[in-house]
């Protein structure tokens, strides 16, 4: 009984979460800035609606909801990988400055390379260029953090280094802004607010491919990730090749966080908070269950955030970044203050 009861609970929780995510996905398509009848939305989905509703649903709401699912899942899994890799419950793409690194890549492409953001949206080459720049930026910060955390066992030191990096990067970006024109500047500032709706189908395709690649890379690593729960020495003595494993995990986390940040801007606190919510819901430390669970939970949270951000209606939108911060910060505080901060007392 001891054997199957937890796995039954686990499948129940997983199924439940999947259904909730599905519901949220439908809700995200049904509700938006412009009020539309449910019937109109469904007709538009099957190409039988009015031209106006078809544009709203097919060009805005559907890609937006899909982006929320992909971005939420990718950022959360990236956070999960980093928390296990750095043995740090507070690790996450934004907390450790990874998102800032990706942002620097984006800023370089937006503010210096491409004269207008709009052109980037049309050209698939620009889309991939931005993704690659974001990966490079995220990877660069990740390598620095890795180097620091291999010398400093104290998680707070690593966090402070992450914050410093983020500040340094934002200083560099400010410098870049000084040399750029007003249009580019506005595009960049809007990007920093986080936006799920500014994505073309073409960009969405690039994002999906990148996120899928990152997810596959991450899922291939579940076994070594589980071993790393017991510590590095143990992992090495059961045959985990730490160097290549670390490299793979860094790559996966950078690809996931970088791609999302490139297109959606920094979505704060999703990456650090969602893995903890998933651990709480599924009551497991096993990455085989935790990884899909975290991905689903992340999708659900970002769908909720998107619903809230478009709730005011009439074209008014609360920046998604604001909503995710309001959801994520209490969780992060709970980790810091609560007994869940396992790493701090070593």
């Amino acid at each position: 009984m001891r054997e199957w009861l937890p796995s039954l609970k686990l499948s129940l929780a997983m199924t439940g979460l999947f259904l909730v995510t599905l519901l949220l996905f439908c809700a995200d398509i049904l509700f938006g800035g412009t009020p539309l009848e449910a019937g109109d939305v469904v007709r538009a989905l099957f190409g039988e609606g009015s031209p106006e509703s078809e544009i709203i649903v097919m060009e805005f709401r559907l890609p937006r909801a899909l982006t929320a699912v992909i971005a939420g899942a990718a950022l959360s899994v990236s956070g999960l990988l980093m928390q296990t890799l750095f043995r740090n419950p507070l690790a996450g793409p934004d907390v450790l400055g990874i998102s800032s690194g990706a942002g620097l890549g984006v800023a370089l492409t937006v503010l210096t390379l491409s004269p207008l953001f709009a052109i980037a949206a049309d050209s698939p080459l620009q889309g991939w260029g931005m993704i690659l720049a974001a990966w490079a930026g995220a990877g660069m910060v990740m390598v620095i953090i890795m180097a620091v955390s291999s010398r400093m066992r104290d998680i707070m030191t690593v966090l402070i280094v992450g914050l410093m990096l983020a500040s340094a990067i934002s200083a560099v970006v400010s410098l870049l802004q000084y040399f750029s024109n007003e249009t580019m500047l506005r595009t960049y500032v809007i990007w920093t607010m986080g936006n799920l709706g500014n994505i073309s189908w073409q960009q969405l395709r690039a994002l999906s491919i990148a996120a899928l690649a990152g997810m596959i890379l991450a899922f291939v690593m579940v076994k070594p990730l589980n071993a790393m729960l017991m510590g590095e020495t143990f992992s090495r003595t059961v045959g985990v090749r730490m160097r290549s494993t670390r490299l793979m995990l860094l790559a996966a986390a950078s690809i996931l966080a970088g791609s999302v940040t490139a297109f959606c801007g920094p979505l704060a606190f999703i990456g650090v908070a969602v893995p903890h919510m998933a651990r709480l819901l599924f009551r497991t430390t096993d990455h085989r269950a935790l990884m899909p669970g975290t991905a689903l939970f992340g999708a659900a949270i970002l769908l909720v955030s998107d619903l809230i951000s478009t709730a005011p209606g009439g074209g008014q939108i609360i920046p998604v970044n604001t909503v995710t911060s309001l959801i994520g910060i209490p969780v992060v505080l709970w980790i810091i203050l609560g007994k869940n901060a396992t790493g701090g007392r070593r």
């Binding site: 296990t84 043995r87 589980n226 071993a227 790393m228 729960l229 017991m230 510590g231 590095e232 020495t233 143990f234 059961v238 651990r279 497991t284 430390t285 096993d286 396992t342 790493g343 070593r346």
Partner: peptide
């Protein structure tokens, strides 16, 4: 080793399973 277990929330059975 004397290295502390990284994830203290892991269950005894899961730790042994590793």
């Amino acid at each position: 080793s004397t290295e502390p277990v990284a994830e203290r929330n892991i269950s005894v059975r899961n730790a042994v399973s590793l």
